[in-house]
Design a protein around this nucleic acid. Structure first.
Lengths: 311, 311
DNA sequence: CTTAGTGAACAACGGATCGTTGTGAGGAGC
DNA sequence: GCTCCTCACAACGATCCGTTGTTCACTAAG
């Protein structure tokens, strides 16, 4: 099925006859006839009944028409998604199931008319470069990792303090606890294979380890969230950290437990980063939406690294 | 932009390298390279960064990927919409703003997983032929016009009795009435240019005219609903009938009035028609949905033609 | 340092496709 | 019967597409 043929099909429907459609498309009537014939051959159905005064849709053609229009619309949007100028707002998130993703879903619900593209970069340097070049419009990050202050032309605002929770399998020693203190975690193995050295969230966990004497293992290949959950569920001695807003998808029966952590409650500081001079109109809308909907977290009793001082 | 190129793009993303994608697609690596190069030229952006171990998505590529996948999904569904076998449920309605259309919207809300195609045929004979041939799965009609009983292999069930309302402009003599009786309408001109002779709704209005001595004019070309509403709004001597559930879209300020008709209340009998042997699984779901959600109308005080005796 | 292996791009060739011109069939209106 | 209008079929030329053959860049092993 060729998009050009689909476009021709819609043109014939709108013109009512092959001849006019040919003029609209700046080709000959014979070319239109051929394209429609090819499309009909590809679909194995007759789309028009040819009459003396033009072409009328068959029932199959009527059923196909809205699909064809949708196809062209989607193709149009796909094209727009990579075109500079007034392309969709392009936002970078840490991963597709994290808190930032949830914030973007909320934004999309509040402003369904704004076209969005979500991408995932890994390092904050990459993100900053992309923001500077205009390749992306905004990024959710934990800003200002130690020794690496944000450049002057990049602005940021704290949008979410996300408490961490402990994730354990049903056989874990802490599985029955309603909440655990950081001190209680000192002897346990915490496994986070997804962590990428050099990123700002690696720095976050490094600080957490250093301050409270935890044992976090980032060893082993990262086979993705599913494999991690499988292992956690089956292993009584392993646990992992997970943001409170992280959306998990696991098979029923795993018996995984999410346990709040207290004394202090470790919170992950999400900020929105953007370029000072970015003119994208939807960027202002996003910032206004986040400012309006995201409630600040109570700083008392919670912990963040020094470099991410509470606002 | 070529669909085959988009398919190749997704294949490369999934394979991680051109070579593997080429094997998956049963073409040579050079062909894949060319297709991607052509796509990148069409889009004016680089989609992959070529490395020694394959190809990685650029930011533009990441943004384009979900659009590409959607495009292929929509193309798949467009193809399925004309393929016999397990194609979408195809239902015929009288017009896109009528009561049947509203019923189908309700069905879609209740069963969003069921793929639907809505078409519009004009004559009940066409609809019956289409139902018999399997070209459509069901049709909303007023069944059993006089002298034309339904064939034995077509089944039907009454699904909605829709009261008619009078639609007038602000200057019409009846514009201020909260309701009008059929007897009051006797002297007024009622204009229904959309009516098509030979259809079962033409028969309905013929009976209405004959029984109550009304004046219904079906003359003049039908320029569509918008033109009809414009004329009605501006003309103090013209009115028209409209189903209670018909969705009207008119510019603000027209001052159109919808006035219930009583003594008796003319109701239009909508039935669902389908073929006895149609095996489409969604057809049973539709029938069950309609049976469950559509409340019967009180027959007392209402009027339908003799040939559409109340259930 | 050399050599084998891997992954992608460039060049050239043969076949298929696409759009064009030219022509014919089939009705509707005068 | 004539013209006008519609669309379909045939033949030809240009373009596009995929293939084979080859080169380039880089990595890993000896």
């Amino acid at each position: 099925m060729d998009l050009e043929a689909v476009r021709t099909f819609v043109a014939v429907v709108e013109a009512g006859q092959f001849q006019k459609a040919a003029i609209d498309l700046s080709v000959t009537q014979q070319a239109v006839s051929k394209r429609i014939a090819t499309l009909e051959r590809d679909l194995c159905v007759r789309l028009f009944t040819r009459t003396q005064r033009g072409a009328e849709l068959t029932i199959d053609g009527q059923a196909f028409l809205p699909r064809a229009r949708e196809l062209l619309r989607v193709a149009e949007r796909a094209l727009a998604s990579v075109h500079p100028g007034s392309r969709p707002l392009r936002v970078d998130v840490l991963n597709s199931r994290g808190a930032a993703s949830g914030l973007m879903r909320g934004f999309h619900r509040a402003h369904p008319e704004i076209d969005l593209d979500v991408v995932m970069l890994f390092e904050i340097e990459t993100a900053v470069t992309a923001i500077r070049s205009g390749a992306i419009d905004a990024s959710f990050r934990a800003v200002a990792a130690p020794g690496r202050p944000l450049p002057e032309d990049i602005e940021s605002v704290r949008v979410l303090d996300e408490p961490l929770q402990l994730l354990t399998g049903p056989a874990h020693a802490l599985a029955g606890a309603r909440s655990v203190t950081v001190a209680q975690l000192a002897g346990h193995r915490i496994w986070m294979p997804g962590i990428v050295p050099g990123t700002e969230w690696a720095a976050y966990y490094d600080d957490l380890v250093a301050e409270f004497g935890l044992t976090i293992e980032a060893t082993g290949p990262n086979f993705g969230s599913d494999a991690l959950l499988d292992t956690i569920a089956d292993t009584p001695t392993l646990a992992t950290f997970m943001g409170e807003h992280t959306r998990l998808i696991w098979p029923a029966g795993h018996g995984l437990r999410r346990i709040p952590v207290t004394d202090p409650m470790p919170v992950y500081p999400h900020s929105l980063l953007w370029h000072r001079d970015n003119p994208h109109p939807a960027l202002a809308t996003l910032r206004a939406h986040l400012a309006a909907t995201v409630a600040g977290h109570d700083a008392a009793g919670s912990w963040t690294p020094d470099w991410a001082a509470p606002h």
